[in-house]
Design a protein around this nucleic acid. Structure first.
Lengths: 204, 204, 204, 204
DNA sequence: CATGAATGAGTGTTCATTCAT
DNA sequence: TATGAATGAACACTCATTCAT
C-alpha cells in the first residue's frame, strides 16, 4: 500500500513555499533549488508534483488568485454599493504585511508578463479583468442606489483600478512617501469624490 | 600613448545600445553578450566602462531618466498651470511606441527595485519623486490661478501619479482593454475633475 | 501469507514489455519509468524482480536469445545440409518487421558490449558463438553430403556470419540501399557460391 | 589585441579528445564534462567552439571521416584493380590499435543512428555509401583488367562491405575468436574467391 | 507483494566575470 | 584601449534508486 499523499494538498503546501520565495526574493530568485529549499523537500519532489517550472509558477499564481477571490467574497458578503466598493478598494491595497506580500507576489507576474508577452495561460494570470469587473458592477450598483456619482461605470472602475495598482506600486517602491496611512487617506479621498453627498467636501 | 577616448561619451554610446536591447527584448534578454553585440564592440569593452552588469543597467536607467526630464522641460516650456499639468500627464502615458518602450523599460526597473529593496543608487532610480514633485508644483500653480480645484496639492499629485502609472501598467498588461485612446479619455476625465469649471460635468 | 507469484513467470512477463519498449523506442528511451508504464505495473515492481537496470536489460537479452534459439530449432527441424544452411542464413536477416526489431534490439547490446568490455554474463550476451557454431556444423554437413564446396567449415561459417551481421547492420543503417529484396539476393548469391553445382553461375 | 587562437586548429585539438573518449568509453559516457576533462580545458571552452553537444559529436565524426578518406587516398595511390581492392579491404579492418579505436568510434555512431533514426546530418554520418562506392569502382576496374571474376560490381562490393563490417563487429565483440590474423586470413580467402585465377583453390 | 514518494547526482546549457595578450 | 578566450557556478530537468507504507 503506497504512502498516502493527497496530491492536491501537497501541491498547495509546496505552492505556499513558492509564494513565500517569490514575494520575498522575486521571481528570478525563484529557482527550483531555492523553492525546494524553502519547502524543506528535495528538488526532485517539485518535479514530482509539477510538470516543470512554468507549471509551478503558473500554479502558484492560480492558487493565489483563487484565494484572493475567496477573500473578496468573504469581505463583501452583506455589503452593497458604495460600502462594498470602499471595502473592495481598501482590500486591494497593501495595507498590511500579508497584502504587501501579495502585491509583491503579483507584481512579479505583471512584470514577467510585460517582459515576455502574454503566455498561453494569460487569462488566468491577471487579476485585472476580474477586479475591474467587480469594481464596475459595484459602481453601477452604487449609482442605482443614488450613492455614487454619474458617469460610465466602466470608466470609473478603470480609474479606480489604476489608482489601486498605481498606489500599490508606489507603496512598494517608496514606502516612506506612500505609507499605509497615506494610501488609506488617498483612497478615501477618491471614494469621497465618487460619493454623491460628500463630493463637494474637497472641492470647496 | 593612450587613445583619447572620452569616457563619458563612450559610456553614453554604449548605454544607448543597452537601452535598445532592453526596450526591444526585455531585461532578461539583456546579457552581456547581447548588449556587446548591439554596441558593435566586444564584451570586454563593457567590463571596461562599467563595474559590472548591475552598473550597466543602473547607468542605463539613469541616462533614461535624464533624457525624460529633458523632454519634460522641452514640452512644458511656456506652459503653466492646468495646461502644463495636462501636458505632463499625457506625456507620461505610453501613448506611442517610443513611450511604450520607455514604460516597459522603466517597469523592468520597478520590479527589480521592489524585489531587491532600494539600492544605494535608489534616489536616481525612481522617476516617482521627480514626477510627483512636478505634478504637485503644477497643481499648486493651477490652484493659484483658479484653474484647479482645491485640496492638498501633494495629495492631488499623488493620485494623478497613481493614475498615470496604474494606467501605464494596465496598458502594457492588457492593451486590448486599455487602448491608447482609452488612456487619453480616462486621463482627460481625471483632468476634467480637477478643473474648476468642468468639474460638474461628469457629476450629475 | 504471501501472494503466490511465480517469480520466473512474472519476470518473463515484465521482460516482454522491456523488449517491446527497446525494440520500439530504442535503448535510451528505456527508462525505468517507461518500462514500468509498458508493463502496467509500478516502477517499484521492477526493482523487486531485478537487481538493477542493468539486470533488467541483460535479462531481456538473455530471454530474447533463448527465443531465437527456439525459433532456429523449429525452422531447421527436418532440414539438413545446404537447405538448412540457407534457412538459417535467411532467418538471421532482418527480412520482416519482427526480425528488424530483433536486429535493432541485439545491436543495442552489441554496441554496449563493445563499449564496456565483456561483462560477467558475456557468454549469454552474444549470439555470435551460438550462431557461428550452428553455421559451421551445417557447412560441414553439407560438405559431407557433397552439396557444399570445400574449405575450412569454421572459416566458411565465419564469413557467412560476417555477411549476415554486416548485411543486417547496413539494412538498418541504410534501408534504401540495402532493401529486404537486396538482402535476399545477396544472401542467395553467397549461398550459390557455396553450392557445388551452381558455383560457376556467377563466375564467368 | 586578442589572444590569438586558430579556431579550426583548436577545434581539431578538442575533437581529438572527443574521439579518444568516444572510442574508449563510448558515446554515452561522452558527456560535456568528461569531454572537457579529457581536453584538459574547462567545460565552458566546448561551448565556445561548438554550438552544442550535437555539434561536437557531429564534428568529431566529420573530422574522422575526412581523415579516413585521406588515408584511403594515400594508401591507394598508384594502385588499381585487385591490388587496390585488397588494400582497401584490409585498410578497413581493425588490424591495429588505431583502426580498432576507429572502428569502435564509428560503431558508436552506427548504433546511435540505428537507435535514433537518421539525423539531419545523416549523409555525412555514414562511411558506408562512400566505401561501397569505392569498392564497386575497384571491382569494376578489376573486372575490366580481367583480374576479378564476373558479376554485378555493386553486389560484389556490397558483399565485401558486409564482410568488412561484419568482421569488424565480431573482432570487437569477440577478439579471442576473431583475431587480427584471422581477419586477414578470412579477408584473403574472400579476395581469393574474387580473383579469376585462384578462384578454384578453395573449391575442391 | 506492491506502491509511488522522495532523493540527489548527473545531464546540457547559459552566462557574468576575469585576464593574458 | 580593446579583445575574446577561458572559467566555473548556476540553471532546469531527468532518472535510477531507495524505502516507508
Amino acid at each position: 500500500m503506497p504512502k498516502n499523499v493527497d496530491h492536491e494538498q501537497r501541491r498547495e503546501e509546496l505552492l505556499a513555499a513558492v509564494w513565500a520565495v517569490i514575494a520575498r526574493d522575486g521571481l528570478e530568485k525563484a529557482t527550483i533549488r531555492s523553492l525546494a529549499k524553502e519547502t524543506g523537500w528535495s528538488s526532485g519532489v517539485l518535479a514530482h508534483y509539477f510538470a516543470d517550472k512554468d507549471d509551478i509558477l503558473a500554479s502558484a499564481l492560480r492558487l493565489a488568485l483563487e484565494r484572493i477571490e475567496e477573500r473578496w467574497d468573504e469581505k463583501l458578503a452583506g455589503l452593497t454599493g458604495l460600502a462594498a466598493l470602499r471595502e473592495l478598494v481598501l482590500d486591494n491595497l497593501p495595507l498590511d504585511d500579508d497584502r504587501e506580500q501579495e502585491t509583491r507576489f503579483l507584481m512579479n507576474y505583471w512584470s514577467r508578463s510585460i517582459r515576455q508577452g502574454p503566455s498561453e495561460d494569460e487569462h488566468t494570470w491577471r487579476r485585472g479583468p476580474l477586479l475591474v469587473d467587480r469594481l464596475a458592477a459595484l459602481v453601477a450598483e452604487g449609482q442605482e442606489a443614488g450613492e455614487v456619482v454619474g458617469g460610465d461605470p466602466n470608466d470609473l472602475a478603470e480609474r479606480l483600478l489604476a489608482l489601486i495598482d498605481g498606489l500599490s506600486l508606489h507603496a512598494l517602491l517608496d514606502p516612506q512617501r506612500v505609507t499605509r496611512e497615506r494610501q488609506v487617506a488617498l483612497a478615501e479621498q477618491e471614494l469621497g469624490r465618487l460619493s454623491v453627498g460628500q463630493s463637494q467636501g474637497e472641492r470647496r
